[in-house]
Write a protein that binds this DNA or RNA. Structure first.
Lengths: 192, 192
DNA sequence: TAAATTTGCTAACGAACGTTAGGTTGTTTA
DNA sequence: TAAACAACCTAACGTTCGTTAGCAAATTTA
C-alpha cells in the first residue's frame, strides 16, 4: 500500500526524521536538502521557513493525541477503565509515528512565540484530561496515590520513552505494549 | 555555605544551565559568554572547545550515577529491596542536580566519536545493573512481568522525567519522591 | 622582586547558516 | 495552443558561528 506524498509532505517527513535524530537546531536546511536530493534553496518553493516545518509537525501531533483520547474515552466507566483507555490511545499514537512523536515531545521548545505558548497550553490541556480521570479515581477510592499531578507525570513519563526503542518489527506490537504498560501502571496506582 | 568555584567550574555550571534550557546546539559561545559577563573568546583561556564542556558534564554525571547505585546496593537482600535501593539512589542523583541530569539525559547525542560510543556503553552498563536485579526478581517469583528489558525501560523512563518539574522548594523532598516512585513502580511489577 | 599564572581583552579568520532573487524547464490547465 | 503552475536551479545576501592570534593587566608563586 504505497501512499503517494506531495513534495511538501515528503519534505516534512524527511525533516521529521532528521529533527528526531539530530534535533531541530542541529539540522540544517542543507542537510535536509541533501537527504531529499535537491538544493537547499529549492525547499523554499514549498515551505516558508524552517520553523514552519516544526510548527506543522508539533501541532499535527497535538491534534492526533487529542483525537485519540477523545475517541477512546468511555463515559459511565470506572476511572481504571477510562485511564486504561487513555493510556492505550496514547501508546497507539506514539507507536504509529515514532519520529513525529519524538519531535512533538522534545523539539517543541524551539518554537518561537506565540506558537511556543500556544503549544504549552495545548499540552497542559491534554495532561489535564489524565489528571481529571486520576482525580476521580482517587475520590472513588480506586487509586491510592498522594497526588494526581505526580501520578500523571509519572505515567506519561513512562509512556513517552517508547519512541526511543519501539520498532514495528519488534516482538511486541503496539497493542501488547499498551496492555502491558496500562496493567503495570494501573497496578502501581491501586496499591499503597 | 557558599562554595567557591573556579572560573572553569563557573563556566561549566553556567553552560549546563543553558544546555538544559535551550539545548547544546542552540546555545552559542556568545550566549554563554554573555551570561558570564565576559567575551566569547575569553572562555578559551579555560576550556579547549564547546564540546569539552558537554563531555565533562556527561561523564561526570555518569560517574555520579554509578557511584550512587554501587553504594546503595545491598547484597543478600531481595530483588524488591535491591530495586527499591537502586531507584532511590537514582532519584537522589537526579534531584541533586537537575540541570546536569537534563544534559546527561538529552544532550549526550551531540558528543562526537569516540565519546559518543563510550557514553552509550556506559549507559548500557548502568541499565544492565537494573536489568540484573529485575531478572533475579522475575526468577524468584517476586516480579510478574513479561520482559525485564521492557520493565527497566519503563522504570527509568518514569524516573527520568523528574528533572523537568522537580524544584528543591516544592512540597515533596527528594526522599519522599523516591519513596513514592519506588512504591508505585514496584507494585506495578508485582501484580499481573 | 622577578617569574609564572590567571583572566581577560580586541580583532579577525573561515565556515556554515537561513533565506532571497531571478531564471529555466517540464507539466498541467483553460 | 497559450497560460499557469510546479519544481528545481545557480548565485549570492547578510548573519552568526566556533575558534585563533596576539596582547594587557592583575594576581599568585618562588
Amino acid at each position: 500500500m504505497e501512499v503517494i506524498l506531495s513534495r511538501k509532505e515528503q519534505i516534512e517527513q524527511t525533516a521529521t526524521a532528521l529533527f528526531k535524530n539530530r534535533g531541530f537546531s542541529a539540522t540544517s536546511m542543507r542537510d535536509l536538502a541533501n537527504q531529499l536530493g535537491i538544493e537547499a534553496a529549492s525547499i523554499y518553493s514549498h515551505i516558508k521557513s524552517k520553523e514552519e516545518i516544526l510548527q506543522r509537525v508539533c501541532f499535527r501531533m497535538a491534534n492526533e493525541f487529542f483525537e485519540a483520547i477523545d475517541q477512546a474515552d468511555v463515559r459511565n466507566a470506572s476511572a481504571s477503565e477510562r485511564l486504561q483507555a487513555a493510556i492505550t490511545a496514547h501508546v497507539k499514537v506514539l507507536t504509529k509515528n515514532t519520529e513525529a512523536s519524538a519531535v512533538f515531545l522534545h523539539e517543541w521548545r524551539h518554537l518561537s512565540e506565540p506558537h511556543h505558548a500556544e503549544f504549552l497550553a495545548l499540552r497542559n490541556r491534554y495532561e489535564e484530561h489524565f489528571r481529571e480521570i486520576t482525580r476521580e479515581g482517587i475520590k472513588a477510592g480506586e487509586f491510592k496515590v498522594p497526588d494526581e499531578k505526580f501520578a500523571v507525570l509519572t505515567i506519561l513519563s513512562a509512556l513517552n520513552w517508547i519512541h526511543t526503542w519501539y520498532k514495528p518489527e519488534g516482538k511486541m506490537n503496539a497493542e501488547e505494549i499498551a496492555t502491558n504498560l496500562a496493567t503495570m501502571l494501573l497496578n502501581g496506582l491501586k496499591q499503597t
